[in-house]
Amino acid sequence: MSRRLDEFWVTMLTQDFLNRRRTWMATLARADRSAIEAQLSAEPALPDHTRLRGPEAGLVMVRGRMGGSGAPFNLGEMTVTRCTIRNARGQIGHAYIAGRDGQKAELAAALDAALQDPEDGAGLEARVIAPLAEALVQADNTIRAEAEATRVDFFTLATMRS
């Protein structure tokens, strides 16, 4: 019984960790490199790392769905840069980010590794990732507000056919 409960909690914690990691990877992919560097400026330096792969630029074939909801088709490619590092604490960090900024990909991979640290990770997440994510939400809200201002109500006049 208790073993099953343990497995349950391990699964839940793993799932929670996975969701957090997906969030920070997405945040790092979308944030500007300068914004990430600005958040890191007050932090102690990240652990040293060695590059295992890249940073290297490549392509991702973007797929859409027919009619928006049907079977997939290939829409076209986008540039992507990936990087994998191992830091001095032995953690492996990955990054795949849109565009061709190799420095940003390496920085994102180094952060991905550091954020996995059981001791420092959560603090780093709160101080570095949370403000970046918040800024991205604000940027979205600005778009939403601009769009909202152009919301339109059309009136239909009596048709000439009736």
Partner: peptide
């Protein structure tokens, strides 16, 4: 230019219903 780059992956189909709408 694109012919000089390797292809890393194909994406999951994009969800246009979840688009951040501009228009």
């Amino acid at each position: 230019y694109r012919t000089t780059l390797p292809r890393f992956a194909s994406s999951l189909p994009v969800e246009t219903s979840a688009m951040l709408i501009h228009r």
